[in-house]
Amino acid sequence: MSTNASRKRSLPAMLLFFIIIGSVTVIWSGPFLWMIIASFKPQTFGGLDMASLAPNFKPTLDNYRMALMSAEFGTLYINTIIVTFGTLSVQLVTVVLAAYAFARLEFRFKTLIFYMFLMQLMIVPPILIVPNLKTIVSIGLDDTLVAVMAPYFASAFGIFLMRQTFKSIPRDFEDAAVIDGCNWFQVLRYVLLPLAKPALVAFSIVSIVAHWNEFLWPLMVIDSPDKMTLTVGLASFTRAAEGAADWGLIAAGTMIVMFPLIVAFVLFQRQFVSSFMFSGIK
């Protein structure tokens, strides 16, 4: 509708629109602006005068130096990457296979089982931290990175998304491939998956972001500091720095954790945005 409406906007209306949206945008980005500025700001006594966004100081890397010394960001990064991509690789297998079954095959209890999966959209793993921790302990996986990933290996959201995508691909393509002598795996590999690529990318991005950001479950299941993920490390780092009102240090630590996301987002902004949009319309 705004495509239509905007055509007729008068100049003052346009100006008002830009002022409002412009200032909301500035306010919205405030915390990030502060993070970037404060992370390069020399520590003032007791953290006073840290809020000013005016760059009236000589930038320093001290905060970053201190942050890198106070937490094992290297280990935290490696663990987080293992968790994020480990989860995604298993998910891709389980999700594609299950979605294919739902989209293309007929079997008993199909509707019931589909609803069982759908239900997991609401009964998400964080709610079940207590019994899941018990399960993890009983199979001896506590305090391992596999334990952080395992509850997410079946993704209802992914199955739901891929099922819709597969359904939207005409069967003719597959039939043609089968006539050409392709087996089911080849059909999947050379016909369905390439056509479903946008959905796969969308699912992957959403999954990576979700698991990069996960906090409560790894906090529960990991005890050894050398197996912690970035979010858990950042939390204890921040609490310690907060006690000394070391805001520049907190800003630098947060920046270190968010940096890959910022870079990825700047480079692939369109991809990110369309992935998240894609996940919505289906």
Partner: peptide, 14 residues
């Protein structure tokens, strides 16, 4: 595979 993990980490814990 999906059903296994769904049961193991959603329905069994419930």
């Amino acid at each position: 595979p999906a059903l296994f993990f769904l049961v193991m980490f959603t329905y069994y814990p419930m």
